[in-house]
């Protein structure tokens, strides 16, 4: 399980971020006192840090600079300042991404996922001993193979990465749209049922379970 360290001074935002990230299957830790931020981060050894730029009595950019002297942990800067120069400055200090408030929660999850994917060396999780070729969109069970369309591949990939939890339709939609596939609700349903049928062809029964009103889970 990946861990995320949240540095955010607004209590309400902090609590909701904690719930959001926990629900998304991250081991989440929030910081409540900001006297020794860099040391706290180093002690916890998170996979990713969400760092607010404006913390009273503390400058997020300075924290980032100090952190970078001692660690390469991925950092996403979160801020309500949204000028281009702020962003460029943060990135030059070594941030991996930059998100402005108020953010769409699904987009935030997406960015966190993207940074983790970029920085981690581990391969894709395994799924029922299938041979998965993401680039070509081919899945094979050794004997037979199926060819997925781009949309189906995006959906399958996202479900696979988040295998341990239920993924909402909204999340899937965000992921698809982020990949410039602007499909509508019906098309998503069609894609999912097609993906199910294709997986069935290579002998996988009930790969994607529907949880009514919540979303889907890869089983």
């Amino acid at each position: 399980m990946k861990s995320v360290f949240i540095i955010e001074d607004d209590i309400s935002v902090r609590e909701e971020l904690f719930i959001l990230l926990n629900n998304a299957g991250y081991n989440t830790k929030v910081l409540t006192t900001f006297d020794n931020v860099v040391q706290d981060i180093l002690d916890f050894k998170p996979d990713l840090v969400l760092l607010d730029i404006n913390i009273p009595g503390l400058n997020g950019e300075v924290v980032l600079l100090n952190l970078r002297k001692r660690s390469d942990v991925p950092v996403i800067m979160v801020t309500s300042r949204n000028t281009e120069s702020d962003e460029v400055l943060s990135m030059s200090y070594g941030a991996d991404d930059y998100i402005t408030k108020p953010y769409n929660p699904n987009v935030l999850l997406l960015r966190i996922g993207a940074v983790l994917k970029r920085t981690s060396t581990s391969n894709l999780p395994n799924y029922r001993d299938l041979d998965i070729n993401m680039q070509k969109g081919i899945i094979s069970n050794g004997k037979d193979e199926i060819i997925l369309t781009k949309n189906e591949m995006i959906i399958f990939n996202y479900l696979l990465i988040n295998q341990s939890r239920i993924v909402s339709r909204d999340e899937l939609m965000t992921e698809l749209w982020d990949n410039d596939e602007y499909i509508n609700d019906n098309a998503l349903s069609v894609n999912i049922s097609r993906l199910r049928n294709k997986l069935k062809e290579i002998g996988i029964e009930n790969p994607i379970e529907t949880r009514k009103g919540i979303g889907y889970i890869l089983t």
Partner: peptide
């Protein structure tokens, strides 16, 4: 504006959670 974005973020997160 920067201040008001904080409760807005908070609300958006709440609505999502």
């Amino acid at each position: 504006i920067h201040e008001v974005k904080i409760p807005l973020s908070s609300l958006t997160l709440m609505a999502h959670n």
